[in-house]
Amino acid sequence: MTMARESFQMVSSLVRRETSMVYDEGKEYLVEARLLPLAVAAGCTVDEYCRKLSIDFAERRKALDALTINETSWFRDQGPYQAFTDTMLPALLQARSTTRRLRIWSAACSSGQEAYSIAMLLDQHLPAGWSAEILATDVSTAMLARVKTGRYSQVEMNRGMPATSLVRYFTRVGSEWEIVPKLKAMVTTRHLNLSAPYLGVPTFDLVLLRNVLIYFDKTTKADILRRMLSHVASDGYLLLGSSESTLDLPPDLAPRWRREQIGRVQAHRPTGVPAPRPSPASSLVPTGA
């Protein structure tokens, strides 16, 4: 069984468009090997599964995850983490000196490297007497289970984890490494679909929404950024992926987020400008009086 040529072309152009990763011709076997388990789970053939991807965003996310599986690393891109330690954290420590509590949201946490990377930095830089809570959400319950277990293979550990942090925050369990309990205790997992309402989700000092908007269409992207306004503190930060920070915002949103260059990354911060009132046009209609 080999996947149809159109299926491969569709998938490779999807991956190229969304992640800049390139699957050249001849890599059909690889794409097929990665998608087959998902197709089986969805109860269809690989070709049928590929057709599904154009309409089903949740499946598209899973497929892109499977096809970009090696892209997950600790402290991915470094820049955001540097900006967090150097700039955002000191500012938040000043701003939250009465509550001494920080709240961070790793939205679309995947296997948890982002949430735990932040947990490691907080362990190193949070002054005594402070506490931090990291909410890790994902649409995949399998991923959430992985985050909770906090175990990573040797190959995963090799990706971007400084050796000093590895020995400090992980213990060996069989052929894997497990994150220490004190960092696990900082991270709470929860199932959440970013394109559905965020019920009971509080306000955060930092929201990491990196490399996930690329999986959604334009309308959903804008909708997510609109709803994120209620979940980022007025002096908080929203971090998108490096290729997503230059997204064009729709007219209603453009005045409500401002971009701030912090080191090598751009953070989005709420401006406090209220939402435009819905259609005041009717009151301007001449009454003819």
Partner: peptide
Amino acid sequence: EYVIKPFTPDA
């Protein structure tokens, strides 16, 4: 630094 074998080039 420390890299454990086996590794991929990315590591």
